[in-house]
C-alpha cells in the first residue's frame, strides 16, 4: 500500500499564489452562496434597519426644522447612512457565525487537512462578508431612494458609500471571525450583536451632534462609528468630499488592521493546534 504523506500543517501556501487566489475565489463564492441560502440569517439585518428608518422618518420629520439640524430634504435622507451602517454592521457577523458553524460541523478541519492554501480559508470569509456588504448597501440605498431619500453626491457618492460599507464589513467582521475561530461556537459569535448595537446608538448615527449635550456628545463624537457615519452623511446630504471619504476609510483600515490581526492570529493558533 502506498503511504499518503500527511499534509504539511505549517505550510504557508502549499499550492502557489495563483492556485491560492483561485481557491480564495471559490471559497468566497461558497461563503456568499451559503449566506444567500439562509434568508433567516440575513433578512432581519435588512428588515430591522428599514423598519427603524420608516419609524424614525415618521417620528422625527418635524425635528429637521429645529435650529442646529443640518439642512436636509427629509429625515429619511438624514437617516439613510445610519440605515446602511446598521444593515452592514448586523450582516458583518454572518461570516463569523458561518465560520463557527464550519468549525462545529468539522468542515473547517476537513478544509485545513486538504491541500488548500491556509490564507484562502481565512480570506474567503473576509471576502464573502465584503461582497455581501456591497449587495446589502446597494439594496438599502435602492429602497430608501425609492421612498425619496436622495444621495447628493450622485453615482460617485453611491459608489463611495458602497466602498465604505465593504471596509466596514471587513473591520467589524474581523472581530466576529476572531471570536468564531477562538470559540468555535456560533452562539458566542452572536453575542457580539449587543456590542455593535451599543456602538451604533452611542454615536451620531440617529441624531446630529449639534443637538446633543454633555458627556453623551463627547462620547458620541469620539466614537469611530461617528467618523464613518459623518462621512457617509456628507456624501448624502451635502455632496462629494474626498477628505470625508478618506477619513472614513482611514478609520476603517485602522480598525480592520486590529480586527484582522486578531482573527488571523486565532486562525494560525487553531490550525497549528
Amino acid at each position: 500500500m502506498t503511504a499518503v504523506a500527511a499534509p504539511d500543517v505549517g505550510a504557508r501556501d502549499p499550492a502557489g499564489p495563483a492556485l491560492a487566489f483561485r481557491q480564495t475565489l471559490s471559497l468566497s463564492r461558497r461563503a456568499v452562496i451559503s449566506t444567500l441560502r439562509k434568508p433567516a440569517a440575513f433578512v432581519p439585518g435588512l428588515f430591522f434597519p428599514l423598519l427603524m428608518a420608516a419609524v424614525y422618518s415618521s417620528q422625527f420629520d418635524r425635528v429637521t426644522a429645529t435650529p442646529g439640524f443640518p439642512e436636509v430634504d427629509s429625515f429619511l435622507q438624514f437617516i439613510l447612512p445610519a440605515t446602511i451602517l446598521q444593515g452592514v454592521a448586523f450582516g458583518s457577523t454572518i461570516g463569523g457565525v458561518e465560520m463557527a458553524q464550519d468549525i462545529e460541523s468539522g468542515f473547517f478541519d476537513r478544509l485545513t487537512s486538504a491541500p488548500v492554501a491556509r490564507p484562502a480559508i481565512f480570506l474567503s470569509r473576509v471576502a464573502g462578508s465584503a461582497a455581501f456588504a456591497a449587495v446589502e448597501a446597494l439594496i438599502l440605498i435602492g429602497v430608501l431612494t425609492a421612498f425619496g431619500a436622495r444621495v447628493s453626491a450622485g453615482f460617485g457618492g453611491v459608489a463611495a458609500i458602497v466602498v465604505i460599507s465593504v471596509f466596514l464589513a471587513v473591520a467589524l467582521g474581523g472581530f466576529g471571525l476572531a471570536i468564531a475561530i477562538r470559540s468555535g461556537n456560533a452562539e458566542v459569535v452572536q453575542g457580539i450583536f449587543p456590542a455593535i448595537f451599543a456602538l451604533l446608538f452611542v454615536s451620531t448615527a440617529f441624531f446630529p451632534p449639534s443637538l446633543m449635550k454633555g458627556w453623551f456628545r463627547v462620547i458620541a463624537e469620539a466614537n469611530p462609528v461617528s467618523t464613518v457615519i459623518d462621512a457617509m452623511r456628507h456624501l448624502v446630504i451635502v455632496g462629494w468630499s474626498t477628505a470625508e471619504f478618506g477619513k472614513a476609510i482611514a478609520v476603517l483600515v485602522a480598525i480592520s488592521a486590529v480586527s484582522l490581526s486578531l482573527a488571523y492570529s486565532q486562525y494560525r493558533h487553531r490550525v497549528k493546534a
Binding site: 425635528v63 435650529p67 452611542v202 441624531f207 454633555g214 458627556w215 453623551f216
Partner: peptide, 21 residues
C-alpha cells in the same frame, strides 16, 4: 434590565434635541 437601561441612557443622550421642538 440591560436593554432598557441602555435605551434610557442612549436615547436620552441621542435625542436630547427633541425637547427643543
Amino acid at each position: 434590565l440591560v436593554m432598557p437601561l441602555f435605551f434610557l441612557v442612549s436615547y436620552s443622550g441621542s435625542f436630547d434635541g427633541l425637547t427643543n421642538v
